[in-house]
């Protein structure tokens, strides 16, 4: 009977609890897609990654956050086979993929992007996209010479690529060399290209770095929509706004270890996370007069702050708030 319910579930609105039991570091998930155990990697004397137990929930968007050097990207590299751990085992959809080479991991449906964007500069945007597609018989040397064998699949791939390019607003750049794209556009191209593989799990390493605010919004919607197509997303990001908006689950790393896990609202109130990563006033939006007033009130009550004293200078309340009110047209 529970099988029946699984099939009819709408992943966009699925509100069932993600974890089994309490939301604590290393907790079990109701339906994990990735399970990692005792994964460690050290560079010299430093333990870059030391993860005791981690499960990534299926059909959810999971954010991996943490300060610089916390081991987020190293964990990405380990899980996808781009780096080899000192110890540990991990599985994807129940199959052990420890020590499996990166291309096989990708073929199984676990596709990643890179923090330092990797696009093929001297291929056109469309060719970049086509390169991502799987099951193209023409990629075999024995069939490459015969266009009749791979031509029809190529048409399907091109159609798939065009749909994605339009979604990511790169359709005007279709025939340009990828090297002529801006940094943000390259991020988009890389993400779109990874979707060409039709992955089950997309792992995005800082997808929003360098993307302009207007585009961020539509990109967030795209990532959210991946869920409705049955995909699972794991992403590393420093933009807390994005984490709050789209993540169903947040995993916090510090010094290689998982220090907290839980839904975004809960994790961001966790004192350990605030100390290690977010900082005390992370939830104030400084672009907004209301937010500033709140922060002012908080800081005035804080004995260590200069706000509210004579030394306040240009951060004095009247100065800042009047400027913002003027901007808002009040």
């Amino acid at each position: 009977m529970s099988e029946q319910r699984e099939e009819n579930i709408d992943y966009m609105t699925d509100a069932r609890p993600i974890a089994v039991g309490d939301n604590e570091p290393g907790c079990k998930k109701r339906d994990p897609i990735v399970v990692a155990e005792n994964v460690t990697r050290s560079f010299g004397g430093i333990n870059a990654v030391d993860v005791e137990y981690l499960e990534i929930p299926r059909h959810k968007i999971t954010a991996l956050i943490g300060p610089n050097g916390a081991g987020k990207t190293t964990l990405f590299n380990l899980l996808t086979g781009f780096d080899n751990p000192n110890s540990g085992k991990w599985q994807f959809e129940g199959q052990s993929i420890a020590g499996v080479s990166p291309y096989k991991v990708a073929r199984m449906g676990m596709v990643r992007t890179f923090q330092l964007t990797k696009v093929m500069g001297k291929l056109t945007v469309l060719e970049n996209m086509r390169l991502g597609a799987s099951d193209q018989p023409g990629e075999r040397l024995s069939k490459a010479l015969f266009k009749g064998v791979w031509g029809s699949r190529e048409k399907e791939i091109t159609a798939q690529a065009n749909v994605l390019l339009e979604k990511f607003k790169l359709d005007a750049k279709r025939d340009d060399y990828a090297a002529s794209l801006s940094g943000g556009q390259r991020k988009l191209l890389e993400m779109a290209r990874s979707l060409m593989v039709r992955p089950k799990l997309v792992m995005l390493d800082e997808p929003m770095a360098g993307v302009n605010p207007a585009l961020t919004q539509s990109l967030l919607d795209h990532i959210k929509n991946l869920k409705s197509e049955g995909m699972t997303v794991l992403f590393v990001e420093h933009d807390m706004n994005m984490v709050r908006h789209i993540a169903d689950w947040v995993v916090v790393m510090a010094e290689g270890k998982i220090v907290a896990e839980g839904p975004p609202g809960e994790v961001m109130k966790n004192p350990a996370v605030i100390d290690a990563y977010l900082g005390a006033h992370h939830d104030v939006d400084l672009g907004d007069a209301e937010g500033i007033r709140e922060l002012e009130a908080e800081l005035e009550a804080d004995e260590e702050s200069v706000v509210g004293t004579q030394d306040a200078g240009i951060i004095a309340k009247d100065h800042v708030v009047s400027g913002l009110d003027k901007k808002d047209g009040k």
């Binding site: 096989k104 291929l123 390169l131 010479l145 890389e190």
Partner: peptide
């Protein structure tokens, strides 16, 4: 023969490798 090979998807993977082999690896190509 080389021209036919290089305009095929096989040639495209090669050119991708020339640009960045890790990116090609991440897309599931050996």
């Amino acid at each position: 023969l080389v021209w036919l090979l290089m305009r095929s998807p096989w040639g495209r993977v090669l050119k991708g490798i020339r640009e960045d082999e890790n990116a090609v690896r991440s897309l599931g190509k050996n």
